[in-house]
Design a protein around this nucleic acid. Structure first.
Lengths: 260, 260
DNA sequence: CGTGATTTTGACGACACTCAAATAAAGTGG
DNA sequence: CCACTTTATTTGAGTGTCGTCAAAATCACG
């Protein structure tokens, strides 16, 4: 249930029972599952987490600004983009439930602007607290490292997408990536559904112009590969055709995102 | 002194005094410099490292194969590429001195093939040994995490490169990236020098065809921006012009690479 | 219902890709 | 060491696709 409703901004404690359900997909959860960390230690870590919410359109961090937190997204979609010095805008990725937005990096200053595309709910740690945790629990460092390597692979997939020559190939790959990140099992009724993203964002993600994106969408629509009940709602009707266009070697599932 | 000569394959101990000079740029060195790790602990880690060499053209790991080591490149250049299911080839990055090629990742199987473009010398740890070190020394995990975030930024820069519309923009950005990674201070006499890379590799890195790359090189050559004493040796003569073409916002210096 | 923003469609041109051939360099064997 | 083959690179001509510019249509919002 990816929420598009509007949360009011508020800080809260992660242990809030009503929020517990979201934690199952969380990175923090993996620590207990995958490593030797004791349950007590995990609870200690979760106790240090707080809850933040961002309403649609709200900026979480501006490119270049210092991010003093480490966020773990639990609901909603975050867009990441970078402004080049000539004013061009590039969408570098998206963060959904289970993904991380981290202020722990070599160079101070966020690499890109992070903005809530839909309403977003996320756990977070203060930077210094998280660094202390990393020092104390080496398993946590390994989990974070593995998550980061997942993101490196995801960025490589993005590179491959951008290397494709043809419009429809790029669009198909983009739509599949978005839909697999966005659609929940209970929603996959009549096809995967892509998150509500503007043409501009798609264009800036695919390295195309908005006009080309629009033309591509019409092509896919008239050929029945996708359907568009409303303008910002895209449903993937014919997955094999899309996979064929995108030439996906494998479904990019189960990879955690890692924003900077 | 980026070596293009040919090392014979051999394993050795990292503590080899003659090799010590290369270690100054190594990630391992940063641990002592940047973190609170004691000198004794660092020596312990270095003691577990071994030395490997790869002659030009040698494959270090094949895409999909399990990599049971963590390499720290000390000399030479490694190319990383991925074969798509339709046979297309994409160069995802390059690793030079100071960079890491890691078998510690979420999914087993290397994401891409790593091949020695020139002769390569690298320290390495066995996977299990390195995991034990990560468990023991949490500072090491933080350093690795920071290195991985550097790579995420670098991959984002690659994405931006591929998003550029014009041929010369892509080529300029590619040449600058390569040259900054390759040129040593003592070599920067009459201009930065790019590593000896085939047109095919450049094309597959930039998302272009070899013909387009060739045409672009001639354009840059006749306009005096670069010079080519031999075919595989490119010298960047007019850096401001290249920066102007590439529209680099900042020099991508001091970022460690992280291959998977 | 009117205003503004977003998206769609159209016409045209530029740029890079495709196909093809020529040139240059690197290996190979006598 | 030189002819020969093989590979890599360069150059050329023609085509197709996407970008650019412009206008129309659709949607969101007050």
């Amino acid at each position: 249930m990816p929420s598009e409703g509007s949360f009011e901004d508020a800080d809260d404690i992660c242990r809030d029972p009503s929020a517990a359900q979201y934690c199952s997909g969380c990175l923090m959860h993996q620590i207990a599952v995958c490593t030797s960390m004791e349950r007590a230690a995990l609870e200690q870590i979760r106790g240090a987490a707080k809850l933040a919410t961002f309403s649609k359109g709200k900026t979480i961090v501006e490119q270049g600004d210092k991010l003093d937190r480490v966020y773990f997204v639990r609901a909603g979609l975050i867009g990441l983009w970078r402004i080049l010095e000539d004013g061009q805008r590039r969408v570098t990725g998206f963060l959904g439930p289970g993904d991380v937005l981290s202020g722990i990096k070599t160079r101070e200053g966020a690499y890109c602007t992070a903005k809530a595309i839909t309403a977003v709910r996320a756990c977070y740690f203060e930077r210094r607290d998280f660094l202390a945790l990393l020092h104390e629990k080496s398993e946590l460092g390994v989990v974070m490292l593995l998550t980061a390597t997942d993101e490196i692979e995801a960025q490589n997939d993005h590179n491959i997408l951008l290397g494709r020559k043809l419009l429809l190939e790029r669009l198909a790959a983009c739509l599949l990536m978005l839909a697999y990140r966005w659609t929940r099992p209970d929603e996959a009724g009549d096809g995967l559904v892509a998150p509500p993203i503007s043409r501009t964002d798609i264009a800036d993600y695919c390295g195309l112009t908005i006009e080309s994106v629009s033309r591509g969408f019409t092509q896919l629509r008239v050929s029945g590969v996708i359907s568009m009940p409303t303008r910002d709602r895209v449903i993937l009707k014919n997955l094999p055709a899309l996979h064929d266009l995108a030439r996906f070697e494998e479904v990019p599932a189960g990879r955690a995102g890692f924003g900077l």
